[in-house]
Design a binder for these strands. Structure first.
Length: 122
RNA sequence: GAAAGCAGGCUGAUAAUCGCGCAAGGCUUUUUGGCUUUGUGAGGAAAGUCCGGACAUCCAAAAAGGCAGGUUGCUUGGGAAAGCCAAGUGCGCGUGAGCGUGAGGACAGUGCCACAGAAAAGUAGAAUGCUCGACCUUAAGUGGGUAUAGAGCGAUUGUGCAACGGCGGGGUAAGAGCCCACCGCUGGGGCCGUGAGGCUUCAGGCAUGGUAAACCCCAAUCGGAUGCAAGUUUGAAUUUGCAAGAAGAGUGCCUUUUCUCGUUUUGUUUUUGACAAAAAUUGCAUAAAAAAACGCAUUAGACAGAUGAUUAUCUUAAAGACAGAAUCCGGCUUAUUGCAGGCUUUCCACC
RNA sequence: GUCCACGUAGUUCAGAUGGAUAGAACGUCACCCUCCUAAGGUGAAUGUCGGAGGUUCGAAUCCUCUCGUGGACA
């Protein structure tokens, strides 16, 4: 679904995005936004981060990551978050609260945070 | 019927809908790509990283001996090897089926054993004591007292985890392996067993407290270090600084043997050679320096890192729990759900 | 992923080769001092030594397993 052009793949890209310090969050997720796009002919790149601090076991962390990835992908496909395409990059970092959430709760979190980011920094 | 023990086994399958990684093919596109078909896609522990290997690089290369160091520690067999497995022996636990077991050596040596206690290991010591003897008393060596200067004793009391074989009898002034039986211990013989060891017999007369997961001794065994973030190739053409530079160096150290390396030019000097200078070389550090491929997969396999969700049916005894491959194997350990069946033991009830 | 270190009062640390009351400083609490607070003085409380098992007469210390925390390597 998300091909290589739409993902952040290098350590440098992550650092560059963090440095913009455009941060919004709720109980489940922290969202970092990158620079605003100057042209619209390349896609927004996204990274998903679930650290070992959230949970020790890889199974739980993988589940959160899948939920995040699928939420973003489906929302993008259905055209519910067009404002996300204004940024060159996005990073979703999971928090403790996301451990026992289901797909719908994740979706609404992602949607609200993107909207919030767009109103604050666009 | 109840409570236990043991050895194993499994930890889904099919279909539908949505969705993901990899490989091959097809269509499409200016390219990164997009669409589509087919195939394939986590575990019994994938985990911890506790052992053993494979593999890779470095220590310039190899062999023998010694020293130091590490590891292991009942026997036999299996195994590439292992802090591995199986069967046994001894010891301990359990009514039992069974379970556990780091299980060489404490007469090679050294250390330690707090407090308490007379004394903590030396053929020791005399606190509480026992007996004899002395003196006083008494008809009496009858019972008792006094003194603690004598002799004998290691039984009793007390301390402690532990007190110098245990228990009983004889013996004695009181006692003591002083003597005896049994048990233990030490040494020798016989039989059985591949062996650890078992059974038995004779002798000794007790010497040898505990601790080696204290140092250590003995036996066996081991080149060392670093771990795929190892390492190889491309990038790659090079820059600067320091050190070495004919003395020796070379797998932790030593010895022996073989072997390897130990530069070139110019000037001075009588050749070998020596000295001086320069360059090159080697080692270390540093900049360029970001990155890519291989390593890396023949039935998973990437490089921000793929397996999930819902519903139904089925096998039904159950479909829960613990949990997700990152170079690859063999073990060990730890986490954990639901099971039914098999074999065995003990107790209770009935026939 | 691979390889290493470290866990002791609320906090920062001692406790070297096993011996019983596990100490110190800061902090906390109470009292004194002061009109009150701070400072100062006096006293007190506080630990299954990360957890489990073993060796030993005896374990914070020795051995094994485990849990947690931190670090190095591109």
């Amino acid at each position: 679904m998300l091909n290589k052009n739409q993902r952040l793949t290098s350590h440098r890209a992550f650092i560059a995005t963090y440095r913009q310090k455009r941060i919004v969050s709720d109980d489940n997720i922290v969202l970092y936004g990158g620079k605003n796009k100057e042209e619209q002919n390349y896609p927004t790149r996204v990274g998903f981060v679930v650290s070992k601090k959230i949970h020790k076991r890889a199974v739980k962390r993988n589940r959160i990551k899948r939920l995040l990835r699928e939420s973003y992908a489906n929302l993008l496909k259905n055209g519910e978050i067009p404002s996300s395409q204004a940024f060159t990059s996005l990073i979703f970092v999971a928090k403790d609260g996301s451990l026992d959430k289901n797909y719908n709760e994740m979706c609404s979190s992602v949607k609200n945070l993107i909207a919030l980011l767009a109103t604050n920094y666009f």
